[in-house]
């Protein structure tokens, strides 16, 4: 098959063995998630060819790029993989334009192509700025432009949102979502953020301790989470609606989101821990506040998950003590509040 195939084992820093297998079809985006130290960045490095594998195979498109058994190792420069490294790794001594030009295969057209990509990333005005002077969001735009300008057949992004402050995230997330929609090769995005994974990826690869714990479409993983980490990770509320001037309207509900500049069909996510529950009508902002019926309650040692019914079906996550305070039980009613800043939206993917 074409796309990206990883079925490989290798040793990282002496004694930690990774054994990773997954595939990404062309035109698809996989979010690679998992706790720190699970081997996500190391996997990116072996796909990019910065480090070799010890056994197994890595294929990009129709070509094998790493296969120790038959002695194949294609160097990073010949793999045609666009990488957005953790912290971007822009060349600090070059301007943004020079950074993007660096990877353009056709040297005679490098400047024109680089300017096009910067413009596409909304970064034209940064062309003559030295990379070391760019902010987190600006750096990510230039890093994306640089990766794409090298005309890659696959894209790897290692925590593209990690270095961003909260205000820059929605914009970069929307940009990345549209870039990935247009990109016709396989893409892998490493992230810690469940909402971001859900908003930009078609499927998940969950890593733990150097292994793929679980992989599949979001729906598959949600229906059968393989661990508490996965369950927590995919437990995010996902809603479809139509956005107009900051208000998202769905079937019988409407929510106000902060930092909304998209309009039309959108997908929004709300983390369960961002859903506030109260026994009486909360004072303060009346936006995004309503009364709902509790459908179900599941309690573990550390958390209580509460299913809310009504036109807006949501899952809330509180502490067991919090659940006790509002006397949460199926059939009882509760006041719900969601901060506008906790509602994250992106244009709906086709």
């Amino acid at each position: 098959m074409s796309g990206l195939v990883v079925d490989a084992s290798w040793v990282r820093s002496g004694d930690f063995t990774l054994d990773v297998g997954f595939a990404v079809p062309d035109d698809a985006t996989v979010a690679m998630v998992g706790p720190n130290g699970a081997g996500k960045s190391s996997t990116i490095r072996v796909i990019a060819g910065v480090e070799p594998i010890d056994s197994g195979v890595i294929k990009i498109g129709d070509s094998v790029v790493d296969d120790p058994a038959s002695g194949v190792f294609v160097s990073p420069r010949d793999r045609r993989i666009g990488v957005v490294w953790q912290d971007a790794a822009l060349f600090p001594h070059m301007t943004a334009l020079r950074n993007v030009m660096f990877g353009v295969p056709d040297r005679s057209a490098a400047e024109a192509r680089a300017r096009q990509w910067l413009e596409r990333m909304g970064a034209s005005s940064l062309a003559d700025r030295r990379a070391s002077t760019l902010s987190g969001g600006e750096t990510q735009r230039v890093a994306l432009a640089r990766a794409l300008a090298s005309e890659p057949s696959a894209l790897l992004l290692d925590e593209p949102f990690a270095a961003l402050d909260a205000s820059a995230r929605p914009e970069i997330r929307a940009l990345l979502a549209s870039v990935l929609d247009e990109f016709d090769g396989p893409a892998v995005v490493v992230t810690h953020d469940s909402e971001e994974a859900i908003l930009i990826a078609d499927s998940l690869v969950v890593m733990e301790a150097g292994r793929v714990l679980q992989s599949g479409s979001l729906a598959e993983v949600r229906s059968r989470p393989a661990s508490e980490y996965v369950s927590h990770f995919v437990g995010v509320n996902i809603l479809q609606g139509v956005a107009e001037s900051g208000v998202i309207t769905g079937d019988g509900w409407a929510l106000t989101a902060a930092d909304m500049d998209t309009s039309g069909d959108v997908t929004i996510t709300i983390h369960p821990s961002a859903v506030g529950l109260f026994s009486s009508r909360p004072s303060g902002s009346a936006r995004n506040t309503w009364e709902a019926r509790i459908e179900w309650v599941t309690t573990t040692d550390n958390t209580a998950r509460i299913g809310l019914g009504g036109p807006l079906t949501l899952v809330a996550e509180v502490t067991p003590a919090g659940a006790a305070a509002i006397e949460a039980r199926p059939g009882s009613s509760v006041w719900v509040a969601v901060k506008a800043s906790e509602i994250h939206a992106t244009g709906r993917r086709p």
Partner: peptide, 15 residues
């Protein structure tokens, strides 16, 4: 020197 910069250059196709 952080080796990431050289890795980045390599994956951008530089000799």
């Amino acid at each position: 020197l952080d080796r990431r910069f050289e890795s980045a250059a390599a994956s951008l196709g530089a000799t």
